[in-house]
Design a protein around this nucleic acid. Sequence first.
DNA 1: GCATTATGGATATTTTTTATCTTTAATTAA
DNA 2: TTAATTAAAGATAAAAAATATCCATAATGC
Lengths: 173, 173
Amino acid sequence: MTRADFSDMKIGKGVEWAAHSCALLALLPANAALALEALADFIGVPSPYLAKQMQLLSKAGIVKAKRGVAGGYKLARLPETISLWDITGAIDGTTPSFRCTEIRQKGSCGASSDEVLTACKIAASFKHAEDKFRQELNNVKLPELVAGIAQDVSDQRKSRIKTWIEQNAAFST
Amino acid sequence: MTRADFSDMKIGKGVEWAAHSCALLALLPANAALALEALADFIGVPSPYLAKQMQLLSKAGIVKAKRGVAGGYKLARLPETISLWDITGAIDGTTPSFRCTEIRQKGSCGASSDEVLTACKIAASFKHAEDKFRQELNNVKLPELVAGIAQDVSDQRKSRIKTWIEQNAAFST
DNA sequence: GCATTATGGATATTTTTTATCTTTAATTAA
DNA sequence: TTAATTAAAGATAAAAAATATCCATAATGC
Ligand code: FES
Ligand code: FES
């Protein structure tokens, strides 16, 4: 049972890490990969735990992992095809946040099971609201994210990041 | 520290109970109230725990509690002014689901705190999505909820419910 | 073969949620 | 005024989930 089987719309902090990791990987040249240690160093989080998030991203087909010398992570597909919802879903799962326990059928005036044909209006309303939530996140693709994050970064820091990448990325020959 | 101070967009099962409780209270005549025990019996949940939800609804000004003989709960305001978001917020709190820990400022290429003027694009995107979620729930008022739930209830059961209310509600003289 | 790097599983810790109980305060009716 | 009734508040306990780490294993390139 992976963690994703359980989660719901509550957003774990792993999502923040994963999203920033993807944003960084999007800056890499096509022939480069970043090892877990380098990634954790850049993001500033403990690597053993970040490893879990990266594994989930890998299983979801968002990043591609390569083992061995000069291995590491890179994006598995074009940044334009990766949305914030994809990342959220990979880390936290896609289980709906509202859990209807069918209390309509309980209690002294509970309905019989053959009477409840449609979803309860309450549950349906939450489902609808969650759809909006999901759609909104699905509209935010990686390039937009990268651009938004870059807005706040000074030219000086941008070049520092560029240098860091050159020094820490593993380039395939 | 109340529970509401901590919660986020993850929806606890208490919300389902509270929403159905409000839907029931909306059926009451203006001069009637329902005691906790009766409410718990109708909904089919343990009363000690439901008490907590009712207290939260009371504190939020959604229901009005009256102690003593012939006391109980009734709606504190017009059903038209009570939304599903009001109920959700009262029970689960309104803390945003996404927690930005400002990892921009961490790690080997972290930005200095005076450099991050605006909210991180990632955090901003989640905030935007959550706003949509909230708006959607805020558009669902109690009358719509009651009507939606009633759709699935047979005439026979409707009259059973009506009888139950007459027998279990406390009417002020 | 050897060094390197991700994977998967197991496990530990902490936090949050869920559930219950007990004491206190308020209200009304007799 | 007294007794019965009912909600409020707080303490606490049990269960579940999130968070964090470690280790043995498998894959990869030299
Ligand atoms: S029965 Fe589950 S929300 Fe109404
Ligand atoms: S720093 Fe928190 S989401 Fe980017």
